[in-house]
Amino acid sequence: MKRLIINNSILPILTILLFIVIVWYLAAIPMNSEKVTRQFKNLSFTEHVEKTWNLKKPKLPTPHQIVNEIINTTFYKKISSKRSLVYHGWITLKATLAGFILGTFLGIILALGIVHNRAMDLSVMPWVIASQTVPILAIAPMIIVVMNSVGVTGLLPKAIISMYLSFFPVVVGMVKGLRSPDQMQIDQMRTWSASPNQLLWRLRFPSSLPYLFASLKVGIAASLIGAIVGELPSGAISGLGARMLAGTYYGQTVMIWSALFAAAFLAASLVFFISFIQNYTLRKMAILR
């Protein structure tokens, strides 16, 4: 079984990765050539290529430069230092998790309302959908400014933006999940004269868990995007978003790219973490086998 997974997924992924890396190095040559010819004279072709791959402020940094920067700012800087990627990552992660938890709660509560109350079913769902058609880049500065004006800064405004993005998949998934028991199962509960609470906790909620986990995976990735977007307009000095912004101000392309990769890595780890809990829970419940 293990071997099957390795053969089936690792090899194709590695092939694509290798392809991307090759294209990347090739693309870096023309992208950075101009700067190299300005700085150095009389270089041989191989020397020229080598220089394009190792410029201090390249237009397109190469993979090994980014990896070096990530290793440097992750392992060789004090975690409390402003130059540490771990420090910035943690700031963003905190806002992500806070927003994710808020969003999940909000989503579940709205879904419960929608499933149990016909008026809410008709009135809330269109607004939930409408909320997601507004670009987050337009909403984020407003939330930051409004909350700033009442003296709330730091983690909370970012968490609110995260929540704004992450509650949506949870509402949609949970409404579907809570409605997944069929009429026969609900009738069966009626024949036992079960209370609405018993119906919810013993039938609707367990039935909805596979849907909930699928939503959580989308939700946590959306939360991270929300937290990063929340760091961009706020003039924040810490967090992965702030790091990307600072990189653009000072032309530190390597810094931008390393923050970008750190964010991608963080998102992947978070989704993987939810998958792990999902597999564990559903296996334990014998839904997955």
């Binding site: 026969m184 199962q185 069966q188 367990p206 419940m285 014998a286 839904i287």
Partner: peptide, 10 residues
């Protein structure tokens, strides 16, 4: 007793 057993899989 319904037509389907309707046991909870979990």
């Amino acid at each position: 007793v319904f037509q389907a057993a309707g046991l909870y899989p979990w």
